[in-house]
Amino acid sequence: MSARDLFTFRNRHFRAAVGVTAAILIVTVIGGFIVLPFAQPWVQFANAWDAICSAAGLPQRTAIVAAPEQTGRLSEVVLTSSTLSRSSQEAIGRGATLAQRCAICHGPTGISRADSPNLAGQYSAVIYKELHDFRSGARTNAVMSPFAVNLTDQEIADLSNYYAYLPRLPAYHPTPQLPKPNIVIYGAPMRGIAPCGSCHGSLDNKIGSPWLEGQSEAYMKAQLQAFASGERRNDISQQMRNIARAMTPQEIEQAAAYYASQPADVVKAVD
């Protein structure tokens, strides 16, 4: 016997198998595409064709929804894993020239003697995002904002690449290394706090989140408090406000003190 004897309607097995399969398919298609859509009175379809297309899963763009006005400016930066993924020697060179005016606060080697953030070796996407936010007014600072307003997109990208390229040097305000507090190691799951390192570099880096080792304690504490109070709101879709709000004042202090006491070179290299 050959395939020709099998694939013919004279073969009763073929008839039965194909017939039953087709029948089940037809019944389920009718059930899924016609009966069920209209059996749900709470769903409105324009017509039968709309119902069938929707049941089939034809992708539709969402209808425009009127959202309330934003109160105050929020971040308009779009960050993806390919943001600033390529940097060139020229870009870094241009960035170095531009960076001279940043040196007063952030230090000539990108290490601040004051309580400004250390930028040497910071993830480029972080500097890119914060400069854009300072420029747009999504983040404001009396000293920083005037510097940022006149920067072009190109200049922001060059600065970001330059600082990301600098080696991570020890900070200027060294303190004895503190043991890791629980809030940093474990977060607080039931309050919706993941371990700090799952975004901030030591476990993984969520794009746009800085590494924190060796940064100024006062600076980090102030930022956490500003996120918690809603004073600082340039974190996209509240990703950091959600965390800071759930932290206790004591945890904020512990986290800031811990990170400030860490040498910058122990951040796992993930950029």
């Binding site: 474990y186 977060g187 607080a188 799951p189 039931m190 309050r191 919706g192 706090i193 993941a194 371990p195 390192g197 799952s198 975004c199 476990l203 993984d204």
Partner: peptide, 9 residues
């Protein structure tokens, strides 16, 4: 990813 265990609303 690695912070999944802390994602509770």
């Amino acid at each position: 990813s690695f912070g999944h265990e802390g994602m509770w609303g």
